[in-house]
Amino acid sequence: MDELEFMRGRVYGADHDDPGPRAGRSYAELAGGPLDGLLLDVTGSDGTEPVDGVHLPTEIGRYGAGGRSVYVPRDPGGRVYDWWGDVP
């Protein structure tokens, strides 16, 4: 199993011992970039996404440790966030 296949369907920020989605939670899929295929827990979101998207810390993006990958919602209230790019 390669790294991309291993990450698909896992929840961003979840413990490696318990990587899957939980019942009763809401998730958005991250599409593209270094976090492609991961799920982002959006439980409790009021359906209004941040204008500038979400900045998610990751060590596997362009800037390595300390860098963040930016994902923006594909459409209002959507459950897919597209990769915009990496920032330091």
Rank of each mutant, 00 (worst) to 15 (best):
P21S: 12
F6I: 03
G32H: 07
D52L: 13
D82F: 00
E59D: 11
D41C: 03
G32F: 04
Y81K: 01
L40S: 09
T43S: 14
A23R: 09
R79P: 01
P73C: 15
S26K: 14
Y71V: 04
D36L: 00
G77T: 11
A14T: 02
G47D: 00
L35A: 01
G24E: 10
V42R: 04
D36E: 09
V42W: 06
G37C: 06
D41S: 03
A28D: 04
R22K: 15
G78P: 04
D46Y: 03
D36F: 10
D82P: 03
G47P: 05
Y63T: 00
R8G: 00
L4K: 14
T43A: 02
V87N: 02
D18H: 11
G32Y: 06
L30K: 09
W83D: 07
D17P: 00
G13F: 03
Y63V: 00
Y12N: 01
R10C: 07
D75Y: 15
A28L: 11
G9W: 02
V11S: 03
Y71G: 09
M1W: 01
P21F: 00
R25M: 08
I60P: 00
M7V: 13
D18I: 04
L40K: 09
G61S: 11
L38R: 08
G64T: 09
M1P: 06
D46V: 02
S69C: 14
D46P: 06
L56A: 10
D18F: 09
D46E: 07
L56Q: 07
G85M: 05
R74D: 15
A14Y: 13
W83S: 07
W84F: 14
D18L: 10
R68A: 13
E49I: 01
S45Q: 11
P34F: 01
P50G: 04
Y81P: 05
G47E: 04
R22Q: 15
H16V: 03
E5L: 12
D46S: 09
P57T: 05
E29S: 12
V70Y: 13
D2Q: 01
R68K: 15
H55L: 10
G9F: 02
L30T: 11
W84Q: 08
Y63S: 04
P73D: 15
M7P: 00
R22H: 10
D36C: 06
P19H: 12
V72I: 14
V80R: 15
G66H: 10
L39W: 13
G77Y: 07
Y71H: 08
